[in-house]
Amino acid sequence: MAVNPDEPYRKQSGLLEVEDLTAGYGAAPVLHDVRFTVRPGQIVAVLGANGAGKTTLLRALSGLVEADHGRIVFDGEDLRDVKVEQMVRRGIAHVPEGRGVVTELTVDENLRLGGLWRRDRADAARALDEVYDLFPALAQRRASAGHQLSGGERQMLALGRALIGRPRLLLLDEPSLGLAPRITAQILALLRELRDRTGLAVLLVEQNVRSALSVADEGIVLSLGRVVTRNSAADLRDDADLRHAYLGF
């Protein structure tokens, strides 16, 4: 059943609760009163046309863009005063648009960078081994610099690096950008597998709406920085009017 975004926000028990978030760059807000919830183990797709505010939403959640007002509550903690570099310690991993691989560093250095903040060095080392098991292509290219990797390998690296911190919430921005459909499908399937295996929650920003809805449990549709609807992925796929109006298919 679709949720009317204009209804008063009914607080749900979620891992991430976003309440009336307004944020942007300088004096012009990009997001207006955005509100939604992500529960543990849920994959939520953020959909919308270019310029809808999807990337800004993720950047606001991880602190890269300052919120003008509203609340971002993660596991009961208000994140307003939490610094960007502390987010990862709270269990939030953000894989930014363009993948965010440090191209001057090697694969191994990029991955180790993802676990430097961790006090449990033994578990960080285990997580590193697990990532190499998960992405054998990376294991074969440990010493290669980031700029020598293909687009798919960079995406694996960015995702693997985020997983080293054993996050509870993954903010994933445009993982399919510039990738072949087969690679995109593998990465999205991996998200489901991770969710099922570890209870990871994912907030997935994706231009490829069909792919995103194929893997998501729920979707929220943004238009000009406002949430125009929230619904289950199945219902969004079936809503022809909505698809035509906002999702372009």
Binding site: L64, E85, V88, G100, L113, L116
Partner: peptide, 8 residues
């Protein structure tokens, strides 16, 4: 920015 996201 990426480094900050990784806790640096």
């Amino acid at each position: 920015d990426v480094s900050r996201l990784l806790g640096v």
